[in-house]
């Protein structure tokens, strides 16, 4: 899933400082699963903003909405009437959401309430970790299911580097050296020899270095 953090309340308040009426839009996709932009988080943000503005003597009227997904125009279109009656739309989706909202309602001001951080998963309740960097050409088959692109601080394909000590990366004591893990896993499975092969330099064009990416599946596109 796409993982995000909520922006500090002060920053969101600054986005809506001149507004009288706003609409907060949550998303039932990834940000609901990582507990940052679903129904409950929309209600918490709405209550916080309402109270902060009442305390400032400048009440703010807040509408709340939750879309199946903000990354599909069909769902975004459901908001048309509600959007037209507010000064600003606050999106609680990943960075895709505010853009799809702004595209669907070009006359409307749309602001983000989240900072989108990474593609990852929940390793335990309340803890999410990065697992994928969306590099466009998956190499997990080489590394027994451990991704050095997303999980090595240097994205090394031929590791580990000299900054690995006792299984920990020199960048941060909480960061596992994924190359240490790769070597240990390969050793345990009797496949250490796999690492003798030098992995050639990666083509980073599919990773976005060749410009914004686009995917077309012809069999799904409409003919008319």
């Amino acid at each position: 899933m796409i993982v995000a953090d909520r922006k500090p309340l002060a920053e969101i308040l600054s986005f809506v400082a001149s507004c009288r009426r706003i609409l907060i839009v949550g998303c039932k996709g990834c940000v609901t699963v990582c507990n940052v932009g679903g129904q409950k988080e929309v209600e918490i943000l709405a209550a916080s903003l309402r109270m902060a503005r009442r305390l400032a003597g400048d009440p703010l009227e807040i509408g709340e909405a939750l879309l199946e997904r903000q990354c599909d125009p069909e769902y975004v279109a459901e908001l048309r009437e509600r959007v037209s009656s507010c000064d600003t739309v606050v999106s609680m989706a990943c960075g895709v959401g505010p853009q799809f909202l702004a595209e669907a309602f070009p006359e409307q001001r749309v602001v983000p309430a989240l900072n989108t951080t990474f593609f990852g998963g929940a390793v335990r309740h309340g803890v999410w970790e990065e697992r994928c960097a969306g590099c466009g050409h998956c190499v997990l088959e080489r590394f027994d299911g451990l991704c050095p692109i997303a999980r090595c601080s240097k994205n090394l394909l031929n590791g580990p580097c000299g900054g690995s000590a006792n299984g920990v990366c020199e960048v941060h004591p909480d960061t596992v050296c994924i190359w240490d893990r790769i070597v240990r896993r390969k050793t345990a499975r009797g496949r250490l020899a796999d690492l003798k092969a030098i992995v050639p330099p990666k083509d980073w064009r599919p990773a976005g270095h060749g410009g914004p990416r686009r995917r077309v599946r012809e069999d799904l596109t409409r003919t008319s």
Binding site: P8, L9, A10, I44, S48, M51, A52, L55, A56
Partner: peptide
């Protein structure tokens, strides 16, 4: 924490 953020 939320109360602190909103000034209560």
């Amino acid at each position: 924490g939320v109360l602190g953020e909103i000034g209560l």
